[in-house]
Design a protein around this nucleic acid. Structure first.
Lengths: 370, 370
DNA sequence: CTGTTCTATGAATCCGCAC
DNA sequence: TGTGCGGATTCATAGAACA
């Protein structure tokens, strides 16, 4: 790019607007090397079979929109490689990209990023504090999504506001796993008839951290899968310019209204909900996993009852199996029992409450929080 | 697989030994469909630069740095696809695989898994409670690694000890993000001169959770990148058979010594909380046959619906006949209904769920097994 | 107004055996 | 290999409803 074209290109950028159309075509119509950051939340290519019901028989409102349907991995890969190529052309040399996804698509996206020449800086895990459970008990709760942060290529510079993120994190270096709630409550946009306006609206707290960490005020942020415009909303609040691309008219309308109401630096609506830490919960099973207690080891109570530790963190006492609390309560004939103080193990000839092991783990967690 | 080959194959398995050699060759020398679980921690620090050539030996015109990178990835991808193919041949139809990696390689591994026909069940994030900080302050602290858990194919069955994992997590279903410390302290294996024996030794707590969750006692667990043998050590403790493959003699020696010292936990402590699905099925008609409920007796639901018991163990409700489940579902307008907990009978003036009668029968069956 | 209980819902590749 | 059907399965949070 020469000196002549650069100002012209910059002028041609449709800043702070939502473009209507296919993201690949629209990106290719914009001037090269004109954007500082791209945040992309592409379709995940979920492959859902039948209906899913909660144990109370209510039906889960699935993501079954047309825009998430692809015939095969090959088709999805082709789509991914094309939009990533168009995105890379748009990025300034020191620009960067974030892409978010789940296990359905993120591995294909990550490989395509690397193949396209991007250089992965981190993968960042969004750990959801309130995910939807696994209702059938057949897998782990799908409690996280993965974001990939990449520069334009190996050796390329990029923006990283280390100190700002450290401040956001109470003075401790920001880690690659972020605990944030999903988007619901008042932040969740609704249609006139009370339905959710978009099936997968992202929380502003997530974008807040991304934009504070990897852009500066005045930067241009582009989102090729704009949806209801969370990226634009947070960019506007933080004094960044934004460009959205969205082909669904209904999403664009919601986003337009939303963005019209946003004021820059409205910090109050951005405050990250920080769970005030009570004492962190430590499952008894973790003592077994960590080898602090071994399966087969005998625990004793002050009243002389005994129970044996099993590999899954349950106890077996006389005629009873269950958690440390359940077994203790049963053996004492009591309605409840605090197993942490009730059960003891033998160490160096002395009997010690298992609670000291929990305290050890909590001390580790306190020394290296978050 | 026919009846002839199965015993022969099983006999040929070199259980509880470390095989010396290249993992692909060694896996291909073992009998097909003979392994229940594969846990793999593949290398990602292959020499990606230098002496690379395309399969046809063509020279790449270096118009763009990306080409170098692409060729490097191509070599890694080929390696990945070959060992994943060999691994898939080894797996029993209901077997499963776990692969662990970081952002350097996990996206390529995940895409290769999907392309090879594996079916991803979850990605699980190992969230390190004490990671190495990022000293230069240029990126986020790399505080997690990613594991992929996959079955042999779409629709294939797999082992998932849901209740045991829930017990390990103090009664709450296990999530896809696991907070566990890295391997250090006494668990970290050292060489004679005090150096760490392996650069990426995995903690036993991680393998404990993997093996408790996705294998049963007596299962065969194979680790094609055995290293210092954490997989074998935990498998042995948990009463699973194991096979390791490792081509570095120094790692094999450390692992051999380590495994010789490991003791298996006693069998009873390896019994794990069982799922209700595993309970024996009791037909409702048996309650009628045994006289626990009489034909003509009225059952009631918590919502006030009523139905009459018939001699063949079906119910008649308003405008509907059928099983306890069918009638309940119909009366509630629900897609399904567990009749055992839905229907109640009157006993001594109180309404009691019919499930207590089923529990009586099951208790008898347990006391006098056939 | 306050504290408690009830209800709704979120990117989900969510059953298994008998016939 | 498909179909029928028994019956097992949920956590955190917001907001409404209720006492």
């Amino acid at each position: 790019m020469n000196a002549m074209t650069k100002p012209k290109s910059a002028q041609a950028l449709p800043l702070n607007t939502i473009l209507d159309g296919d993201c690949i075509e629209m990106m290719n119509s914009l001037p090269a090397e004109s954007v500082d950051l791209i945040f992309a939340d592409p379709p995940y290519n979920l492959q859902l079979r039948g209906d899913l019901h909660r144990p109370d028989n209510s039906r889960v409102d699935a993501v079954d929109d047309d825009w998430d349907q692809f015939d095969s991995f090959a088709v999805y890969d082709q789509f991914t490689r094309e939009w990533l190529k168009a995105a890379r052309r748009l990025l300034k040399p020191n620009g960067a990209i974030w892409v978010i996804g789940s296990y359905h698509n993120i591995f294909r996206v990550g490989a395509a990023l690397q193949d396209a020449g991007y250089w992965i800086l981190n993968d960042v895990v969004w750990r959801k504090s309130n995910p939807m459970p696994n209702f059938r008990g057949k897998r782990f709760t799908n409690a996280h999504e993965t974001m990939i942060w990449a520069s334009k290529g190996e050796g390329a510079k990029y923006t990283f506001n280390y100190e700002a993120l450290k401040a956001l994190n109470e003075g401790i270096q920001m880690r690659s796993d972020w605990v944030l709630p999903i988007c619901n409550g008042g932040e969740r946009l609704k249609t006139a008839d009370g339905e959710k306006a978009h099936p997968t609206q992202k929380p502003m707290s997530l974008l807040h951290r991304v934009l504070v960490g990897s852009t500066n005020p005045g930067d241009v942020v582009l989102d090729p899968f704009f949806g209801t415009g969370t990226t634009g909303a947070v960019a506007k609040m933080l004094g960044r310019d934004w460009i959205g691309i969205e082909r669904e008219a209904s999403y664009r309308e919601v986003a337009e209204r939303r963005l019209a109401d946003i004021r820059a630096y409205d910090k109050s609506s951005l405050e990250v909900t920080r769970a005030k830490r009570a004492e962190p919960r430590v499952p008894f099973g973790q003592l077994v996993e960590r080898g602090m207690l071994r399966p087969g080891e005998m625990l004793v109570s002050p009243t002389g009852k005994v129970a044996k530790v099993r590999a899954d963190g349950t106890l077996v006492g006389e005629d009873v199996k269950g958690s440390i609390h359940q077994v203790g309560a049963h053996l004492e004939g009591a309605p409840s029992c605090n197993g942490w103080t009730y059960w003891h193990f033998r160490k160096d000839g002395k009997t010690v409450p298992i609670d000291v092991l929990r305290q050890q783990i909590r001390a580790e967690m306190a020394a290296r929080p978050h």
